[in-house]
Design a protein around this nucleic acid. Sequence first.
DNA 1: TTTAACATTGACGTTAACGTGAAGTTCAAT
DNA 2: ATTGAACTTCACGTTAACGTCAATGTTAAA
Lengths: 129, 129
Amino acid sequence: MTRYSISELANYFNVTTRTIRYYEEIGLLKPERNDSGYRQFTKKEVTQLQLIFRGKKYGFNLDEIKEMVLLFDEDPTGREQLRRTIEYGEGKISEVDQRIHELQAMKGEMESLMQVFYDELNQLEEDES
Amino acid sequence: MTRYSISELANYFNVTTRTIRYYEEIGLLKPERNDSGYRQFTKKEVTQLQLIFRGKKYGFNLDEIKEMVLLFDEDPTGREQLRRTIEYGEGKISEVDQRIHELQAMKGEMESLMQVFYDELNQLEEDES
DNA sequence: TTTAACATTGACGTTAACGTGAAGTTCAAT
DNA sequence: ATTGAACTTCACGTTAACGTCAATGTTAAA
């Protein structure tokens, strides 16, 4: 199994090592250590970091992201636990869906604001002829 | 023309008056004042605040939002200025579009992560019969 | 006309998300 | 064996985006 050092990951994700250490500090990651105390990252942490940076980019804060990461980290055992996990996960997915819709609304708004400028420009070009 | 007080707007947008004052501090708003120095908000500021809160919700910081607000605030006069404004605006719109796509990707990823839980639950229900 | 609810400007406090040394340890290469 | 790069853990510093007083002025209603 491939192991990565902290600076390899920092380079890959274009962040500093401090950022990754901070994520461990607040419980977002729990990488293994080797005999001398160095962090050993695996594919699992890479996946988690991907989720983290995606989430950050779209306005979720680290506390919300933590909930998501932990959700997909533990395996819920037992029907009831599974059902709760699924319910929570569906809630998060519909939150994302909500954001998509509002972003689309925002885009529409910006486009209609732009329309004013388009009209003005057309007016100017017409006057020229 | 209808005028609004600072607390009317704060109530409407569900923020504190401090927030709105802060937005004026950093140049996001420039409301008129009456004789006694009270801020007088009009429809213009309402529109700007709408843009601000939308933007914030979707990961833009106040500096980026400031650029957008100022963009739709000034009337660019002259062909060249107008063209540059349109070009900039289109860039911003495609940034929003980009975010929409990535959010959709995120949603897809979360759904496939959930699939694992669905399968496990089905497995458990089957075992029961 | 006084009282309560609003407004104003400072100005210092707070929190999230890191930045930035310092002081020491480990490892790979010369 | 030594050097330099990369790692470790403190621990204090920084910035954005407000929160939270304090001291004072304004206004509408009783």
